[in-house]
Amino acid sequence: MILIETQNLDFAFEKGDAVLKSINLNVEQGAIYGFLGPNGSGKTTTIRLILGLLPNAKNNIRLFGQNLSDNRINILSKIGSLIEQPSLYEHLSGYENLEIIRRIRNVSKNRIDKVLQLVDLKSASQKKVVNYSLGMKQRLGLAIALISEPELLVLDEPVNGLDPNGIIEIRELLLNLNRENGITIFLSSHLLSEIEKIVTHLGILSKGQLVFQGRYDELTALQNKSAMIYIETSDNRKSADLIEKKYKIIDAGNSHIQLSYQNREQVAAICKLLVEMNIDIYKVQLENNDLENIFLDITSN
């Protein structure tokens, strides 16, 4: 089942350029969907539209198979969300903040203790939120999102501003929620490294356009495509002539030969070929383009 679906979603603020151009999101049930893009690419605008916080005249957003504008309350009852900095009543305690949401969402009182335990805030629950650290506020925001046991979590930059330990804690928590409770998670980030360890699917947004959408392994396939082999031999010119008969060479200079990496069998075949022709191999180096570079390439092109 597709939980979030947008069809040619466009958006522009009054008297402004288009912020979003024809976005077609597809978030499957059970996925951890990473919504990536540099700052200002339109991630928060997309999330605000998905949650009905911005007007959408075209009615082209569907959640849980239902049109958002026609079924707003029913849809929102299944969603827990955290948008940008968490919205909290800072003059109240963490417990009181949860109590407000609990009453509005009409869930049982014991859920407060459960979510406090889940985000590890039980000991600080009676402290005023104004005295919380950013990480604690972020965790309380997450507790608020989780209090109604939602089917879908929409999180906008949930690890923004957290220290490395905080990032790891939130990651583990989200993974557990997805695996153990089957919660579908849609989370945005501007850094691939922050979320690549947990996402199953990715959508990459650049300048208001969805430039990549697919499974995480599809992105890693792109990574393999851009990997390179660098070979240094006793006779680079002769080696290049031999290799070129089977593989396309990108660069053949005096110092090295460069060609695209396909698979490890390709590396073995090249080595065998050179050895058979009595050419000494000094160096075979595989250079992987890391995912961050691919992300940057995608978003900058």
Binding site: R48, L51, G52, L53, I73, N74, L76, S77, I79, S81, I83, Q85, S87, L88, Y89, E90, H91, I101, I104, R105, I144
Partner: peptide, 17 residues
């Protein structure tokens, strides 16, 4: 209370009309 804490966005994403 709502303006200062920026909580309108929280309230408007709750399942209440």
């Amino acid at each position: 209370i709502e303006h200062k804490n920026n909580t309108w966005k929280l309230i408007f994403t709750l399942p209440v009309s």
